[in-house]
């Protein structure tokens, strides 16, 4: 009923608009309008009423699609926050799981996640930044090398995360790790097994493209005039990068780091078999220890736990914590990025 009314009102508005067009008929506008090859090409009827009804429907469809996506997102957030909010207490965040993970908190998972993203950032941020500096400052825009690196970066961004997991297993654990064991420890098994270091490095590879793209975007916002000014004063290229380009790109590096952390905190597939543990009674003390992590915790609690219904609140609580973490990081990154983009226009 309401829709009908709305539809009618829109239709009458559209008709009004048509009237203004028909008024133009006097000066020959209409003839060109109808004979135009553009419309013949499109095989459109000149019946304007029909066209506008169609327009209303088509525009409505696109709007509906956008709204459906937004609605799904909102429903998802509401359901998860609704289910998790009762668990969201200080105790939940700071205690260990108890009684076969059916009670207690998720502190080791939070700790493990934090450790994971810190080690990951230490590895990914400098490498990503340097690659971005190469792409914007050293490489010629259309040179073969720059194009191959860009292609490589984009490929890295689309490789499924599980492949990184396989790579972490095949390269870090079985090649580097076991190699280190046999060289330094005489074959004693220490590094040749899943641990937090290998998991973090695997994750660093996964998040490298995120950092590169963000930093590159920030570097491009630094005006060419500033680089020229520095060079014209007799600064070398490296001095220019260090003193003019780099300070101007710090917000971009920060954005990249935050986005990378947000991605790394949420990904599970790469660490499934490179270091994440089901349950540990102690926090990881060294780089060769396994660790618990939020995403993996959600996964095992929902699929491998003995009594899924009993632990449902914990699952919702953990999911909510993870979502809050990634969302807040994303929002910070979006704000930073918005500021960088504004600077480019200014």
């Amino acid at each position: 009923m309401m829709l009908q009314k709305f539809y009618n009102s829109v239709r009458s508005k559209k008709q009004n608009r048509n009237n203004t067009i028909t008024e133009l008929n006097a000066d020959g506008f209409s003839t060109t309008f109808q004979k135009n090859s553009f419309f013949e090409m499109l095989k459109l009827k000149t019946n304007r009423y029909k066209r506008d009804a169609k327009g209303f429907i088509f525009e409505g469809i696109t709007l509906a699609s956008a709204l459906i996506i937004v609605a799904i997102l909102i429903v998802m957030l509401v359901v998860i926050f609704n289910g998790g909010k009762s668990m969201f207490t200080w105790e939940f965040l700071t205690t260990f799981p108890k009684e076969g993970m059916t009670k207690g908190g998720i502190f080791p998972a939070i700790y493990g996640t934090a450790l994971l993203v810190i080690i990951m950032s230490i590895a990914a941020v400098p490498f990503g930044t340097i690659t971005a500096i190469y792409l914007t400052e050293y490489a010629r825009e259309n040179s073969f090398i720059a194009r191959s690196i860009r292609f490589a970066v984009r490929t890295l961004a689309v490789i499924p995360s599980i492949i990184y997991g396989l790579f972490g297993l095949g390269f870090f654990i079985k090649y580097v790790g076991t190699g280190m064991d046999s060289v330094f420890l005489g074959g004693h098994l220490k590094w040749g097994q899943p641990n937090i270091l290998w998991a973090s490095l695997t994750m660093a590879l996964l998040t490298l493209p995120v950092v590169i793209v963000s930093v590159e975007e920030a570097l491009k916002t630094i005006p060419r005039e500033l680089r020229e000014a520095s060079l014209a004063l007799g600064a070398t290229k490296w001095q220019t990068i260090r003193k003019v380009v780099f300070p101007g790109s710090i917000s971009g590096i920060l954005t990249g780091a935050i986005l990378a952390v947000s991605r790394g905190a949420g990904e599970v597939a790469p660490i499934l078999f490179t270091g994440a543990a089901y349950y540990l009674a102690t926090l990881p003390g060294s780089l060769s220890d396994q660790f618990m992590v939020l995403g993996y915790h959600i996964y095992i609690m929902t699929t491998q736990s003995a009594n899924v219904d009993q632990t449902l609140p914990i699952q919702f609580g953990t999911t909510m914590v993870l979502l809050l973490l990634t969302f807040s990081l994303n929002i910070v990154a979006i704000i930073l990025r918005y500021r960088i983009r504004k600077r480019r226009i200014a």
Binding site: E225, L226, S230, A232, L233, G234, T236, K243, V244
Partner: peptide, 24 residues
Amino acid sequence: GMVFQKSNPFAKSIFENVAYGPRI
């Protein structure tokens, strides 16, 4: 030395702008 059409001071203090050349 060169002075450009669009004034292009670095996003630093006045002092640091002038001291940039001597510093490098």
